[in-house]
Every structure is written in structure tokens, then in C-alpha cells.
Design a protein around this nucleic acid. Structure first.
Length: 484
RNA sequence: GGCGGCGUGGCCGAGUGGUUUAGGCAAGGGCCUGCAAAGCCCUGUACAGCGGUUCGAUUCCGCUCGCCGCCUCCA
């Protein structure tokens, strides 16, 4: 078995073939830290972090790099609005970004690189491009000359002529070609700036990604990711910069995630129809959002709506309910969730009742990260687990062994998917656990006396407070759900 | 106008040249339960339209219609 991915450069599914055996070097375009990110940004970043995890699950040694754009026009604007320095804005929203992604179960990349820590490298790269005749200076600005780079348009599948036809922008003064893009911007009064051979200024947006990705990963690294809206011009420009300078291939495989839709329209800052990830985490919860974001193909557009989230929540709860039920039933025999599950190519460890589902999970994911198929495998595993769980109540020893094996596969796959599932029964709060247990004992007494009104009153009150109780043949189990 | 993607049962959403079902949600019926909840079982016969290729197409090709993305900052 081996992984296949859809490579946007050739627009088809190709064998995943790494530069170095057993290692993956990947880069994803990160946020511009001028505000909270919206849920569309978040989905893309969750996906690439998930892909990174999956490579690790499949035994690869991964180096994952993400950039933070911390110098930009929008940061400068925002700093005027919030009346704090551009640095302060960048710091504030970098922290928020990291917290919000963590709440959705994403781990930090191996390397996060800030644009402002790499200005020197960018200046060198720009100088190199100027020397090679691919860029030119004009009044303190430096522009990339797209006509000088042969392959310009190869990623997005267009030619300069195609694009000229649909021009919608006024050419900037000083540019040779309307599509020439900025490498270095001359500083205006009061803006953050750095000294350069062309005078004080700051880098254009695109240059940071080519410089930082190749600094940490070298030329020809394995995977470069981002949203489809970055294909043109951002990624096209990255290629022009990196390959123009180095004369070798920049990236082996390009991957692009589909856009989040609000109704019939793309969620985008310019349309103003955005939902901030920060707010969504607070209102919906990180894990349900994660389920929503990852359960469909990364390449498809996906609608963000109440009904989509309701579906995601219901499906997710099927998993969390199974987990807490298994925990209740198995007690000390409950398998531990591996924090970083790793499964090498091959069949080792793939025996037993859960293996069928693990194999289906892997073969789906190997096929261009088909998470829909992988999620289906987990759901079917849960169905088998629930059957074993019922049989276990009857004291069936074999069923208990099967439940342990199935649960063990389940927690492995859940960890591979990046779901944490904090224990809810008892929670971390000993006091709450004790009180609930006490009330359940009272209720048990009432039930024994057939005083069902009293028993139901206790159950209703607990439910009102967010404690879900379920009677089983081997006792009442409970878990924390949403309070009314 | 140019480039690209998509159109699957009530909803979301995988997949495949043919005989056996994706999966989830919702719905109906049943089992279990003191009643619930959770769970399990059963039910639904779908692939936009029109042509073509083929012994056979939802699955390949063409056209039509519809939707979306990119071509401007954007995940």
C-alpha cells in the first residue's frame, strides 16, 4: 500500500513520491496575523495539519513548516484601528491563532517562521532576482518581471495573454507589465520598514513564502499546501521567485484545499460573510468543528451552516458516546489512546476484530486522504463496538475481549484523526463526580423501591444540569453533555 | 471573455464500467427499557438532461442546462 495524492500541478492523482525515502518535507501558507482567522482559513490549516499527522501515522518522518505573515498593509491598518503598534497586533493575533487551532485539535508545526525574522534572507533573494534580470527597481520599489520567467502560469494553467484579457486592475505606475508583482515596497511615512539596497521598505507578500520554505526545507520539497484561492497569484509567484532564482524545481507536489461556502458564496473577507474561528470555537466547540472540517474531502467546497454543524455534532457524539460507554464498561481494561500513533507500511499489528476497519481507514486515507471513507470505517467500527458492548452486559467474556480489541483500534484511529476526547465521565472534577455518583445511588434506591417519580425527578434534574444518564444492565452510566 | 471544479436517494456525502450494502444525519417500523436515553435490527432503490462508445454506464466521450471557484487582497 502506498499513498496517492492529487497534485494540483498536474491536476490528477499521482503516487506520493518523496524527495527522500521515508521523509516528508511540507509547507503550508499560514495566516496574516492582523485579526482572528475565519473558519475557512481554519479548515485549510486543520486539513494540512491532519495530512501531516497522517504521514506520521503512516510512518514518515515529517518536517512541517508554516509561516506567519507579520508585516503587511492590513496589519498596519489594523494597528491604527486598535491603536496598538503593528508588532502588538501581530503578537496578539498570533497567540489567538495558536490558541484557536489548538482548541480544534491541531498541533503546532515543527517550525513556525515569522516574516519579520527573515527580512535579510528576502533581501538577498530579491537582489539575486535583480541580478538575474528577473526583477527591476523603480522608485524604491522592486517588481518581479513575469515576462522574464518562462514558466509563468504553469501552476494555474494560464498564459500571460489569457490573463491580460481579463484584467480588472489599473496598472501601477512603474510596472513594466500589469501582472508584475511586488517584491519590495518602498516605505511610506510612519510605516514599519527595513533598510535595503533600494532604500527603506518592506517585502512584498509572496517573497516570504519562497524564502522561508526553501530555507527550512530546501528546493524540491515534498508538499506545499494552501487554499485554492492561493493558486493564483500567490503560489504562481512563489514558483516564479524560487525557480527563477535557483533554476531547479521548487515543489514536488502542490495540494489545495477547497473553499468554505456561506450559502452559495465563498466565505471571504472582502464579502464580509465571515465567521471567526475564535467565535465558532466558543459557540460550537473545537471537536465538533474539527469533525465538520475534516469529515469531507479537503478538495471539495464545504458549506458552513447550522444544519451542517448539527449533523457533525450528532455524528461526533456517536463516537464520544461509544467511548464513554466503553470506558464505563471496561474500567481499568480501557485501552489507552496513543498520543502519536504510528503505523508503518505493512500488516504488522493488523490482526484482530478491529483490523478490518483500520485497514479500510488506511486504504481510504491513502487514496488522496479520503477522509469520508475513513470516517465511515470508524463509524462501522463503532457499530461493531456497540454490539460487543451490549453482549458484554450479559457477561459474555468473549464479547468483552472483542470490545477491548475494537476499542483499542478505535482509540488509535481517533488519535490518528486528532480527536482528543477528554474523559467526560467524572471529568477532571472530583467533586462533581462524587455528587453525581451520590445522586445516582439515591436514584438507584428509588428505582429499587419502584418509586419511579422520584427516580425520574433526579434524572431530569441531572439532565437539566447537563449530566446525561443512561441505565444499562450493568449499572447507570453517565456523561457530561450540553446543559439546557 | 479565459482557466478550473462540481451536479448521487429527504439532507450531507464516498464510490464504481456489470451481478451484494458506502457512511452519517433525518424519517418510519421493531427489539431492549419501569419509562427514557443510548444502542442494535429492518425499511428507502439514487446517480442533472440529451446523445455517443460498449454486450452493458451513475462510472468513459460529447453537447446542453445549472451551481461554484480563480483571473484583484483572500485559506
Amino acid at each position: 500500500m502506498s499513498i496517492k495524492i492529487f497534485d494540483s500541478k498536474v491536476r490528477k492523482v499521482v503516487p506520493f513520491d518523496t524527495r527522500e525515502e521515508g521523509k516528508v518535507a511540507m509547507y503550508c501558507c499560514g495566516p496574516t496575523v492582523y485579526n482572528y482567522i475565519h473558519i475557512g482559513n481554519a479548515r485549510t490549516m486543520l486539513w494540512f495539519e491532519f495530512i501531516r499527522r497522517y504521514f506520521e501515522y503512516r510512518g514518515y518522518d515529517v518536517t512541517y513548516v508554516m509561516n506567519y505573515t507579520d508585516v503587511d498593509d492590513k496589519i498596519i491598518e489594523r494597528s491604527k484601528i486598535e491603536k496598538i503598534t503593528p508588532d502588538g497586533i501581530a503578537l496578539k493575533y498570533t497567540k489567538a491563532f495558536e490558541d484557536d487551532l489548538a482548541a480544534m485539535g491541531a498541533e503546532t508545526p515543527d517550525i513556525v517562521s515569522k516574516a519579520t525574522d527573515h527580512i535579510g534572507g528576502m533581501i538577498e533573494a530579491i537582489e539575486g532576482l535583480v541580478e538575474k534580470g528577473l526583477a527591476y527597481e523603480s522608485e524604491g520599489n522592486v517588481w518581479y518581471s513575469v515576462e522574464k520567467f518562462d514558466g509563468y502560469g504553469k501552476l494555474s494553467g494560464r498564459t500571460l495573454d489569457d490573463m491580460r484579457a481579463g484584467e480588472r486592475v489599473e496598472p501601477m505606475p512603474g510596472k513594466h507589465h500589469p501582472l508584475d508583482f511586488s517584491l519590495w515596497k518602498a516605505a511610506k511615512e510612519g510605516e514599519p520598514s527595513w533598510d535595503s539596497p533600494w532604500g527603506p521598505g518592506r517585502p512584498g507578500w509572496h517573497i516570504e513564502c519562497s524564502v522561508m520554505s526553501t530555507k527550512y526545507l530546501g528546493m524540491g520539497f515534498d508538499v506545499h499546501g494552501g487554499g485554492t484561492d492561493l493558486i493564483f497569484p500567490h503560489h504562481e509567484n512563489e514558483i516564479a521567485q524560487a525557480e527563477g532564482l535557483e533554476d531547479s524545481e521548487f515543489v514536488r507536489h502542490w495540494m489545495h484545499a477547497g473553499m468554505v461556502q456561506m450559502g452559495a458564496e465563498k466565505m471571504s473577507k472582502s464579502l464580509g460573510n465571515i465567521v471567526l474561528a475564535h467565535d465558532a470555537v466558543a459557540q460550537i466547540g473545537g471537536e465538533v468543528l474539527r469533525y465538520w472540517a475534516l469529515s469531507g474531502s479537503y478538495r471539495s467546497q464545504v458549506v458552513f451552516s447550522d444544519s451542517a454543524l448539527d449533523d457533525a455534532r450528532a455524528s461526533y457524539e456517536r463516537w464520544s458516546t461509544f467511548l464513554s460507554s466503553a470506558r464505563h464498561s471496561l474500567g481499568d481494561d480501557m485501552p489507552e489512546a496513543p498520543v502519536h500513533p504510528r503505523r508503518k507500511v505493512g500488516g504488522e499489528g493488523l490482526e484482530g476484530p478491529g483490523s478490518e476497519f483500520t485497514q479500510r481507514f488506511i486504504s481510504s486515507m491513502d487514496d488522496d486522504f479520503n477522509s469520508a471513507g475513513a470516517f465511515a470505517a470508524v463509524h462501522e467500527l463503532v457499530t461493531e463496538g456497540n454490539k460487543a458492548l451490549e453482549a458484554t452486559h450479559g457477561g459474555d467474556v468473549e464479547a468483552r475481549a472483542r470490545l477491548i480489541a475494537l476499542t483499542s483500534s478505535f482509540v488509535e484511529l481517533i488519535a490518528a484523526l486528532g480527536f482528543g476526547f477528554a474523559p467526560s465521565e467524572g471529568g477532571s472534577d472530583v467533586l462533581v463526580g462524587g455528587l453525581v455518583e451520590f445522586l445516582l445511588e439515591m436514584r438507584e434506591q428509588a428505582r429499587a423501591e419502584k418509586a419511579f417519580e422520584r427516580a425520574d425527578a433526579i434524572r431530569d434534574k441531572l439532565s437539566e444540569l447537563g449530566v446525561i444518564t443512561e441505565d444499562t444492565p450493568s449499572g447507570t452510566r453517565w456523561r457530561l453533555g450540553a446543559a439546557d
